[in-house]
Amino acid sequence: MTEARLLEVEDLRVTFRTPHGPVEAVRGVSFSLGRERLGIVGESGSGKSQTGRALLRLSARNGRVSAKKMVFDGIDLTNASERTMRRIRGARISMIMQDPRYSLNPVVKVGDQIAEAYRIHTGASARKARDRAMEMLETVRIREAGKVYDLYPHQVSGGMGQRVMIAMMLIPEPDVLIADEPTSALDVTVQMQVLALLDDMVRERGMGLVLISHDLNLVASFCDRVMVMYGGRVMEVLEAGRLHEAQHPYTRGLLNCLPSLEHPQHMLPVLTRDAGWLEEAR
């Protein structure tokens, strides 16, 4: 399979205006994505979520996004009109958010929320959309889809909510899916099920996946490549299989923080950070 570049990003910056002056959340991130699975790892505040949102041009009101280059499938995302962006959002690039308790509209039936995502981009009739949403619920392995369709978000469990979210974001069949900590709000027992589901869907449809997480192991086992971020900057990009060959001290630090049965350690080392990593590396 030839590596078609779906997404190319160069020198992406996201700056927020705050009462205490501008804060740069993302400082010059560059990467590219084909029909593959890219993991972005970093601790909270490392700018990984803001990178995801910037791709959809959905940064918060006080945020400003700039990039030398941000191209998706030949479309320049930095200059695209809001109209073009709306056609891209959902239909071509979609995003799964962290916690279904907040990311589903509490007063709309979950089924209708899925059907809406379908109707926005296809203009299908209400009946057709309902049928598709029902199928989609079955695809994300929800039994009794007919019953679940009519439930409200507060009536479904976290695991099921996240399945609904996946169904909603995948129903227009996007090319790229950004999953922002898709399992960290879920019970440990459900996490693996949801991840397995996500993995299957992405494989079957041949989508590009950006999996954003703080969990290095999880990312390494699910993705082809891993991008490590710290302080709004990319520290290192690695093949997932070669994680142990990581060069950068920060990645090494992250790896050493994890307990391992093969190399038991009496005390886990504390992550050391170096302000020098934040310098412009040109």
Partner: peptide, 8 residues
């Protein structure tokens, strides 16, 4: 935000 992501 989710609704915006959907392209609404």
């Amino acid at each position: 935000l989710a609704a915006r992501i959907k392209g609404a």
